[in-house]
């Protein structure tokens, strides 16, 4: 294995890991607060990618309805990102309001919530298929792709942006959860659900905030995914989302640091397996490795075992 080859795959793995990490964070946030495996989250990512597609196509004047003028790309990019995050967050919050909260308030068993989440995932996925058809969509070019070649390594500017932006966003998220009042309330809920309302914090608001955070992260991942691999398909949420979920678990579900690390571990495993073996072995080996990690450390890398008092 040459060094060039290694660095090339390293960069690819960083990019792929970034997507997984950003989506995994959404799983982990909701799990930490609600103890709910939000199986719809992968499809929120899909919604993010498609929303980004529509907004991006519209703003770059490639849509059926045209703007009377062309927008410069320094307007288009931030506008696309912000609008997409906003709309996707609305979808996430809507699911919580329509389905999860009523069920929670009626004291339904936790697993019924999980099933409802699964159903919402299917609803989004096949809703997309039914509305937009099975044909793939081409994500618009929000900016020009530049390819840098250094020795045997090729790096696109997109990869660099994706990696840097993910790190920036995860840093901000880390700060929100660790330092702000809302973040502290989120962590408090995951420790003690009953005490939090006693402290004058509205649990419903914190849950809403959690869904906003998680969904907008997924939206961002969706846009970046669309920019990096410009083909969108209705079942992308399932294919990428489930893997991100597993990544969250390997990191220790409920732990944000764990979700990030888990995302990169899964990304690295998959890319490097694909680099050496036929790519059909990618999932097989990646998931076996993950199971091995879990067999050795059942709570995940950064998870804390819950001790019940006897």
């Amino acid at each position: 294995m040459t060094l060039d080859f290694f660095i090339q795959n390293f960069i690819n793995a960083m990019q792929w890991g970034s997507f997984l990490a950003l989506i995994a964070v959404g799983y982990t946030l909701v799990y930490g607060v609600l103890l709910l495996i939000n199986f719809a989250h992968g499809d929120i990512f899909m919604v993010g990618a498609y929303t980004g597609y529509f907004i991006g196509t519209f703003l770059t004047n490639n849509f059926e309805i045209k703007l009377p003028f062309d927008l410069p790309s320094w307007v288009v990019i931030p506008l696309t990102i912000v609008a997409t995050m906003f709309i996707t967050a609305l979808v996430g919050v809507a699911i919580e309001r329509i389905a999860y909260r009523p069920l929670r308030n009626r004291g339904a068993h936790r697993l019924y919530l999980v099933i409802t989440a699964l159903m919402f995932g299917l609803l989004l996925e096949y809703g997309n298929l039914a509305l937009l058809g099975a044909s793939d969509r081409q994500f618009p070019n929000l900016f020009d792709k530049i390819i840098y070649s250094i020795g045997g390594i090729t790096v696109t500017n997109i990869k660099i942006y994706v990696i840097l932006l993910s790190f920036l966003i995860m840093g901000i998220l880390w700060w929100i959860v660790q330092k702000t009042r809302w973040g502290m309330a989120m962590r408090a809920i995951s420790y003690d659900r009953l005490a939090v309302p006693l402290m004058g914090i509205s649990v419903d608001q914190i849950i809403l905030f959690t869904f906003v955070l998680g969904s907008s992260m997924a939206a961002l991942a969706g846009i970046m995914y669309g920019t990096a691999f410009p083909i969108l398909r209705f079942n992308m949420g399932m294919l990428v989302g489930w893997q991100a979920f597993i990544a969250a678990v390997v990191g220790g579900i409920g732990s944000i640091r764990g979700a990030m690390v888990g995302g990169y571990i899964l990304g690295f495993t998959q890319i490097f397996v694909a680099a050496f073996l036929p790519s059909t072995y990618r999932d097989l080996i990646a998931f076996v490795v993950l199971l091995l990690i879990l067999a050795i450390k059942p709570t995940g890398l950064f998870g804390v075992p819950r001790r019940t008092k006897v």
Partner: peptide, 10 residues
């Protein structure tokens, strides 16, 4: 749940 989910993929 997690292990069986991975079993699907495997």
């Amino acid at each position: 749940a997690i292990v069986t989910l991975a079993v699907n993929f495997i």
